[in-house]
Amino acid sequence: MSSFTTYFTSLFKGIKSLLTGMKVTIKEFFTPKVTECYPENRHTTLHVPERFRGELIMIHNEQNEHSCSACGLCQMNCPNGTIKIESEIIETEDGKKKKVLKNYFYDLGSCTFCNVCVMNCPQGAIKFENTFENAVFRREILVKKLNHEGSKMKEKKVAEQKPTNTNKE
């Protein structure tokens, strides 16, 4: 007799659990879909996380100034030889010799996005952006010059308080 009752209870339990499963899926059927329609939504709903490392950039402010002192730490720490810094020695007004950045080359094609360069920069001059549409047709294009044309190094904090001085220099 007990096997008789278990036969029917298991049958109805099975049907109930199947119906529960079907309820779950029909709810899923009507929920908003998670698919990203990528090329169409790149300017509307596309969300790339803030910390995603797409490419290395050098931070420039409105006066076209960066804070890279051309120390070369990033170049030395890069495991792939991705960064190449060209610097020159100039003489300042008060007769001191100073090393300034001439060209900051970054090869996106050999970068592994390990973030070691950003962590080692004493000035906080470089950072990773989340721009990810970097595909090009020739690998030469991937070698980028990160310092903008005509940019110069940011003055020390004393100078920063009087921004009018910077243009006179």
């Binding site: 899926t25 899923e28 059927f29 929920t31 879909k33 998670v34 698919t35 329609c37």
Partner: peptide, 13 residues
């Protein structure tokens, strides 16, 4: 299409 909707996708589009 229906399979995609059940899996919270859009399917072929």
């Amino acid at each position: 299409k229906i399979c995609a909707f059940f899996q919270c996708r859009l399917g072929p589009n």
